[in-house]
Structure formats: C-alpha cells, structure tokens
Design a protein around this nucleic acid. Sequence first.
DNA 1: ATATCCTATCGAAACGTTTCGATTAATTTA
DNA 2: TAAATTAATCGAAACGTTTCGATAGGATAT
Lengths: 342, 342
Amino acid sequence: MNPTIKDVAEKAGVSLSTVSLVINRKKNVSEETTRKVQQAIVDLNYHPRRLAQGLASRRTGNIGFILSDDHFSRAEPFYTKIFLGCEFEARNHNYYILLTTVQDKFTSKSIPRFLPEKNVDGIIVAGKVPAAFLDSIRDYQLPLLFIDYLPLKDIGKYSAVLIDNEDGALQAVNHLIKAGHRHIAFIGGDIKHPSIRSRLEGYKQAFKKSNLPLKDQLIICDEPYTAAIDGYNAMCKLLHRTDEFSAIFAANDAMAFGCLTCLREKKYQVPAHVSLVGFDDVDVATQMEPHLTTIRVNKEEIGAIAVKHIVDMIVNEKKTVGKIYVPVELIVRNSTISRSNK
Amino acid sequence: MNPTIKDVAEKAGVSLSTVSLVINRKKNVSEETTRKVQQAIVDLNYHPRRLAQGLASRRTGNIGFILSDDHFSRAEPFYTKIFLGCEFEARNHNYYILLTTVQDKFTSKSIPRFLPEKNVDGIIVAGKVPAAFLDSIRDYQLPLLFIDYLPLKDIGKYSAVLIDNEDGALQAVNHLIKAGHRHIAFIGGDIKHPSIRSRLEGYKQAFKKSNLPLKDQLIICDEPYTAAIDGYNAMCKLLHRTDEFSAIFAANDAMAFGCLTCLREKKYQVPAHVSLVGFDDVDVATQMEPHLTTIRVNKEEIGAIAVKHIVDMIVNEKKTVGKIYVPVELIVRNSTISRSNK
DNA sequence: ATATCCTATCGAAACGTTTCGATTAATTTA
DNA sequence: TAAATTAATCGAAACGTTTCGATAGGATAT
C-alpha cells in the first residue's frame, strides 16, 4: 500500500500532527524538524490523499467550472481555452477544476452534481447561462465568479472577470481613424448581449474622442446571434443601404469573416476597397486571406486570472472581488490599409 | 449545517449503517425500512458527501481524462465532444471526470496530479499522447482505457475504444464506386498515424472487393500532419502528377477542405468535375459549399462508451475490456455525384 | 529564584462515510 | 421442542487527514 502520513511521521520521528503542520506550511515548526519531515516525504514519495485532506479540512480543493452546452462544444474554442487557462492556474494552487455544462433548457433537476454533493469550494461560471440556473446556484452560498458575462439582475452584487470590450473597440476604431478612414461601419449582432453592447459603445467613443461625426446608418446591429452567418447577413444589409464607407469594425472575428464572404461576393476587395477589423483574435483570423486585423483577447490569461481570484475568495473568505477587466491588444495584420484621401 | 447520514438515521429511526445500506442498494434491507429511509432522505434533502464516501469506500468516484494540450485547444472540437460524451455518461454512473492535459514535451514532473494524489479510480487517455507519458502512467496500476489511439508498444495489452476507420473508408470508397467512379484518389497525411493507416487500408480493401485495379499514383500520403493545409498541399501534388481521376477520398474533413480550396484555385468544380468524400463529419462539413459527403463519427457516443467500459473495469476489477470498435456511418451530401461514364 | 510567556510538539477528537463482524429475531429443519 | 439457518439490523472500527487544546521546556521579566 502507499505511504500515509503515519509512515512519514514514523520515519521522521515526529507525530502525525507535526507532519501535517509541515505539509501545510504552518508556523511554529523548527527548521530542523521541517527538514527531517521533508526528507521523509521525499524518501517515501509521499503524497497526501486528496479525499482525506478534504474531509478533515472541510475544503474539497475543487472548483466548479460551469458553461452552457453549446458554448462548450461549438467550433471556436473560446471557452475551451479559458478553461485550459483555469486548469493550468489551478495546478499552481493545488486545486482541481470540475467542469460541467448546463443545458439551455435548464431544470432544477439538472443542477450540477457537485453542488448538492458539496464537492466544490467555489464556482466559476463562464459565458452566458440560463437565468433560471443562476437562481438555483445562489442557494449554495459558495464563492461565485463570472467570466465574460454578468447576469443583468443584481449586476452590482456579482464578481466577474470581464474583457475590456469598450477599450478594445476604441483601439480598433482608433486604428482605422488614424489610418485615415472616416466612414467606418459597425457590424454587430444581438445588441442585447453585453459584450456587443460594450463594443458598440467603444465604437461610439472613438468618434466622440476624435470629434468625428457618427453616422447611424453605418451601424447594423439587429442580427439574432454573432456567428459568421450573422455577419454575412448584416453586411448584405449594409451594402443594400449604402456603400459610403471605407472600413468596417465587426463585433467579432466570426462576423468579420462573414462580412468578408459577403464583400467578396459583391466584388469588394479587402483591404484595397474596404478595411476590416474584427475582435477576439480567434484562430481563423490568421487562416483567412487576408489575415485579419483584430483585437486580441488572451483567453488563457482570463482563465488564470479567474482562478486566482476565486481561490482568493475561497481562502480569505471574501464575499466579492468586484469586476476585473482584462486588457486587450490591437493586432494589426493585412485586412486594414491606410487611406490618404477619405 | 447540511444534513448528514446521522440526521437521516435519526429521522428514519434506524442506525447509520442501515442508511448506508439503503443508499448503496445493498441486499438484506426490508422494504419497509428502505421506504422509511428514502422518505427521510427526501425530507431532509440529504446528499452523501463525496469526500466522506470516497475516504471510507476507498473509491474516489473520479475518472481521469487525459489528452494532449494541442488536441484540446485546437479549433476542431473533436476531443472536446468526446469529453462531453464522457461527462454526460459519467453522471449516470455518479462519477466525475477530472480533465487534464499533458504537454507534448512531457517530463515526469508534469504527471497529472490526480495520480500521485490517488484522486481517480481509472484513466481515459484520448488521442495520441507522448510515449514517455505512458511509461510513467502505468506504474499506478489503475484501469486504463484509450480512445481513438493505441500505443504501438505492447499494443495487445491495452484496452481501447476505437473508430472503425477501415470500415468507414470502405463505405466511403464503395459509395464512390457505386456512383460509377473508377479513378479514385486517396489524400492522406502522416501515414504513421494509425487512423490514417487504417483509412488507407479501407480504401485499398474497397478496390479489392470490387475487383478494381489500384493505382499507386493516385495515393498521396506524405504530408506531415492531417490539417487543411496538408490536404491543400497533397492535392496540389496530385494535380501536378496527374488529372486522371474523377473522385477523391480525403482521410479527414479538414484535408478534404484543403483539397477543395486547391481544386477551386485550379478551376476544378466539386462535384461537377470531381467528387469529394471526407471523414469525421466535423461541423465545417456542412458549412462549406458544397456540403461535404463524409463518414460520420459520433463523438459523444464514443465518450459514453468509453465511460461505460472504464466504469465496468473499475467496479468489476477487470484488467481489460479489449478493443471496442465504434461503427461509423456514411453521410451523403452534395460533394459527390454519380458518373455514368467513367 | 519564581512567575510569566513563548515556542515547538504532541495527543486526541473530528470530518462523514463504508464495511465487517456481532446480535437479535424470525423461520426452517430435525 | 431444540437446534440450525437465514434475514434484518446494528455497533464499532476504519479510511487518512486537519485542528484544537494541552503540555513541556526554555527564555524572559520581576
């Protein structure tokens, strides 16, 4: 059988509790003893049993990670990468991530098992989840942290790690303005989505800060979702309305890709005729032709930040850590071009 | 505080151990008692603490799920969907999946934590992982099941859930043969990969079974990987070599997509000039134009099957469950066309 | 020299289950 | 009717830690 703390204690010639104190880096242990115990641990290749630790300490050492079904299995691995960032960071803190998904049509029967079974110390919710789900999650009184989404109700009470959408949009549009563009369209979908809303806000801010006029007819924002097909449709609508623009800021890369497809069909060239900027810097951004200028969101970093904060909440029993905005970065590629005359 | 088994015992007027017997559906409990206990459980909304169960029963109730870093975060959510299938099935058996990734450059320091910490009852390895990793995993003597990959060394000793690649390829090529095609090219990459090898084998089988001649010059199989770009390059090579073919079987959808891109550039139309079949039925298969005829692999089902078997191994202490082949299905879409004259 | 305060260590209880052997009651067999 | 068998239930130990209160010894203050 594998060594237990008892074996370590015997080998080091100390009591169980002293070994435990060393393992958990508690104070009031002499250097001498610490050394002896650590040596014994190495010699025996001892690793504390997770379950026993959890039971005794009333800490499971697990963090629940929840996202909606379709967010998880959709093609673009946005949340998957965030999860990966979480997992890496969790290792540093000696936590496990328990990943589970919640269906769009949520019923109280399908509550993630780790909640009733008391198998997590805190919960991370990534992306939009059904409102009904949030109601039933709150009863468990666990540290709760959102990623890239905030429930509208009681918005102030929640902690969240958020992408700085507004600043990203600002950077994107500023880039176009600096390149000499004056007529810049906004292609968005589902304006009810907080991220899209913020990106539109940043777009508007950019005009305001540069003292340029905003043209409402260059804003298309009534598609149902934010996928490539929505970008395609929105682009068609815009072209139907006007062709007085030299640049486009799409609310995300997928929609930018849709825009590109539509523009191609209508024989507009990117970037020769029209410059195009996306948002997210997903993989496809460098796979399309031309490579897409976009706003980079570091997904792994978001996950890491989230774990740091939820661990902070767990360990220090903090009720909230507020809203944390993760900075974004403009990545200039070949889909934008400078324009001397407007 | 939350109810414990003790509260249930008191409420039902029985001993702790009797409650435990009911929970674990052990024999020799009277109907009467069972009813009483179950009622108490419902009344108190009792759920056994996972950690306590684990400690006492020497079963963690966790299954480790391991895949390589890049498999997890790559764009096509193939293994992600398999994971999802695992997670769903695991719920039915009351297990948790602990997901972790292993880096390509594996060192013994980066062994998944749940192994030394004794935090899983069994391990599922999905997709190809570094050989060095496998060596260090074996020491833990846990039930081990592979998905969609088998280490070449000691191949007979391992259990695995595998896609029936050979049969899939057979179906794909048979479909083309039935449609009147005689000159059918094979576009594959990385022939060292067992899946690709099997698909090529199926391709050859189809010709043999139909008593048709196999043309070696129509087989391109020396790209380094199996991504779209490899398909593109392989297709270019083929066209450079000959244009005497009316159909192509690509070793996967990604490569098929690459083929399509190349064919387009060279002004070949699919399916008018060339019919094209892929393998995997990934999302992009229905997003491209024309929609791709392909072989469907049910990823969620694979995950579910894997969990069923690993649980079987855990519960019944089976050393192995052998190789399980998951059937695949031909999905005819618009990239293939019947050809009356060869 | 005595009382007081730290510091390092320890012993034992506790965490919430499962499981095994013991016990009692009911049933069957001789 | 007594003995043997079976079914239902129970009590207690065990799982492997953490943690709290106790203790002994050394340093410091009085």
